[in-house]
C-alpha cells in the first residue's frame, strides 16, 4: 500500500478506452454518445437555466409561457427582490453568509492543519487510539450532538449569534479535513523535516516553515469545501439564528417562501440566482482543485 499522494489531476496509466480506427459503425456509436451526453446535460441543467430565465421574466410570464426565453426581458425581479420591505437589501444576508463562511474557513485551516501535523509527523502515546477516535467523529451524524450543543450555547448566551457556527471550527470539529491533510502531509518526504530538524528547528518550526507552505493545495481544498458547506448549511443556521439582521442566505431565501406579504415568485427566483453566484464563481475559479480534491481525498493509488 503506497503512501504517496498522486499529484492532482494526473493518472499514471490512463485506462480510457483507446479509440480504434474510425470504422463507420464506430463513428455512429461515437456520435450517438455525444448526442446522449448533450441530452443528459440539457436535462440536468434545464432546471438551472429555467431558474435563470424565470428570474428575468415578469410575474405573469413565469408560468404563462413555458418557453425559456422571456418575451420581455427585465431585471425588475432583481430590483424588487433586492430591496426587502423594511428597507434592507439582500446584500446583507449575502454578506453575512460570506462572513460566516470565511470565519469557518479560517478556523478549519488553522485547527485542522495543526492536528493533522501532529497525526502525520509526531510520535506520541495513544496515537492510534486518537486517530481512530478522529475517524469515528467524521462518521457521527450531527443530530446526536446538536441538542446538547444547542443547550450549551444557549446557556452561554451564544444563541442568535454567529459564535456557534464559527467558533467550533477553531477546535477542529470538522475532522474530515484533518484526515484530508494527514493524507496530504504523508506525501511530503520526511527528508525536508529531518533537514530542518538538523538545522535546529523545533516541530513548531517544521510545521511553519516546511509543512505549511507545502500543504497549500490541501489548505485550498479545505478552504473551498468549508466555504461551500458552511454557505449552504441550513440546519445549524436555522436553529441558531433568529434575528433578521443576522440572517444568512439560506434563511433569507426561506423568508421568501414563508413570509406573509411576498407577492410573487419573480423576486424569489432572482435572489435565488444571486445566492448561487458566490458558489458558482468559486467553482469556476477553482474547478480543477475542487474536482481533484474530491477524487484524491478518498482515493490513494
Amino acid at each position: 500500500m503506497t503512501t504517496t499522494t498522486q499529484p492532482a489531476g494526473t493518472s499514471t496509466r490512463p485506462s480510457a478506452t483507446v479509440p480504434r480506427a474510425a470504422a463507420p459503425g464506430r463513428r455512429a456509436a461515437r456520435a450517438l454518445l455525444y448526442i446522449v451526453l448533450v441530452i443528459g446535460v440539457v436535462a440536468m441543467l434545464y432546471p438551472l437555466v429555467w431558474l435563470l430565465s424565470a428570474s428575468l421574466k415578469p410575474a405573469d410570464e413565469i408560468f404563462g409561457s413555458a418557453g425559456l426565453l422571456p418575451d420581455t426581458w427585465n431585471v425588475a425581479n432583481y430590483e424588487n427582490g433586492w430591496i426587502s420591505a423594511d428597507g434592507s437589501t439582500f446584500g446583507r444576508p449575502l454578506l453575512n453568509s460570506i462572513l460566516v463562511s470565511l470565519g469557518a474557513v479560517t478556523g478549519n485551516i488553522l485547527a485542522c492543519s495543526l492536528a493533522a501535523f501532529a497525526f502525520a509527523r509526531l510520535e506520541f502515546p495513544f496515537k492510534r487510539t486518537a486517530f481512530a477516535l478522529m475517524m469515528v467523529t467524521v462518521m457521527l451524524p450531527a443530530q446526536v450532538t446538536i441538542i446538547p450543543q444547542y443547550i450549551l450555547f444557549n446557556n452561554l448566551g451564544w444563541v442568535d449569534t454567529y459564535l456557534p457556527l464559527v467558533l467550533p471550527k477553531f477546535f477542529a470539529v470538522d475532522a474530515f479535513f484533518i484526515f484530508l491533510m494527514v493524507q496530504f502531509i504523508r506525501g511530503i518526504p520526511r527528508d525536508l523535516d529531518d533537514a530542518a530538524a538538523l538545522d535546529g528547528c523545533s516541530p513548531g518550526g517544521i510545521y511553519l516553515k516546511v509543512i505549511l507552505p507545502l500543504l497549500r493545495p490541501a489548505l485550498v481544498t479545505t478552504a473551498i469545501f468549508t466555504f461551500l458547506w458552511t454557505y449552504n448549511d441550513f440546519f445549524s443556521q436555522l436553529i441558531y439564528i433568529s434575528k433578521a439582521q443576522l440572517y444568512t442566505v439560506p434563511l433569507a431565501l426561506r423568508q421568501f417562501i414563508d413570509g406573509t406579504g411576498q407577492s410573487d415568485y419573480g423576486p424569489m427566483f432572482a435572489m435565488s440566482v444571486l445566492s448561487l453566484l458566490p458558489t458558482l464563481v468559486l467553482f469556476l475559479i477553482f474547478q480543477r482543485l475542487i474536482v481533484d480534491g474530491i477524487s484524491t481525498s478518498g482515493m490513494k493509488g
Binding site: L122, E123, F124, L152, P203
Partner: peptide, 24 residues
Amino acid sequence: QGKWALLFLSPWIVGLLVFTAGPL
C-alpha cells in the same frame, strides 16, 4: 514529541471533549 503533540492537538482535544464527546 509528546509535549509538542499535545500542543498541536490541543484545539482538537478541546473540540473533541466540549463539542463532541461531551454532547454525546
